[in-house]
Amino acid sequence: MTYLTESTKVMKSAPQRSRFGTALSLLWADKFAMFAALFLILLAITCMVGPLLIGKAASGINFAGRNAPPSFDKGFLYILGGDNLGRSLLARIIVGAQTTMAVAITAVAASVIVGALLGLVAGYRGGLVSDVIMRVTDMIMSFPSMLTALVVLYVLGPSVSNLVIVLAITRIPVYLRTTRAEVMEARSRVFVTAAIAMGASHARVIFKHILPIVLPTLLTIAAVDFAAVIITESGLSFLGLGIQAPDFTWGSMVATGRNYIASAWWLSFWPGLAITLTALSLNILASWLRIATDPQQRWRLEGGHNHD
């Protein structure tokens, strides 16, 4: 029969590679993204292992080393200098990294979960539920998040848990809006209609067809948002309504250092640089992720060295 002729010319596909392998080669194609990924991996390891190794140096007061300038003479702990109480800045940045990351991860995780769930409901169900959820979101979005956070922290009192809650609440709308929009878009795709017409249950439609489409976008936003949360948290801590002593994050370290800025710039400089590098790495990785997960743009990364 004639129609068999067509089926013999199945497109030649690239050799099957594992997903991880493909991701690695795509990462290799964008050097900025690769360095960003390496930096973040290093940071993650530091957060997990660092405080165990040199945690003591971060709290031991040493008046001899007060505001010691960065130098190689006093051993590696004082490479970045000492703070106003003579504690090693390097050690404090490592311990501060743990708190900074812990606050940000908890806040982002909480807002992703809550936002995605509500967005899924709003996008999938539509109707009144969706309207109510969206109106509340619009309300939260239409006021500066920093001011909302300040007011709530003022009323509830600053503490780590309140800080996480406030950060999460101000970020939820981002995920909610995106998830809802993406779910609505996915829902209108023909293969979802096809699944419903075949009799698929809601659970099957959501978990088999919609979530796999929405997830990459959510991950990308989470990466960008991680950076935004770190910056907001450090801003709040800088204003004195975030993390309270004796706990500290990079943001509160910059705030402390501000008082000594004229005589000892390194107190503020290093923790701020740490924030910038972390946020930058996350943003670079997110923009790479956006290209890598978009089939229409992916050739920019693949082009040139995949001629097999």
């Binding site: 801003g235 943001g251 710039w265 701020g272 924030i275 910038t276 943003n283 670079i284 923009s287």
Partner: peptide, 14 residues
Amino acid sequence: LTGASTPDFWVAII
């Protein structure tokens, strides 16, 4: 990206 990643209070101080 760098602009979007820098904490404003830190840049101000520096």
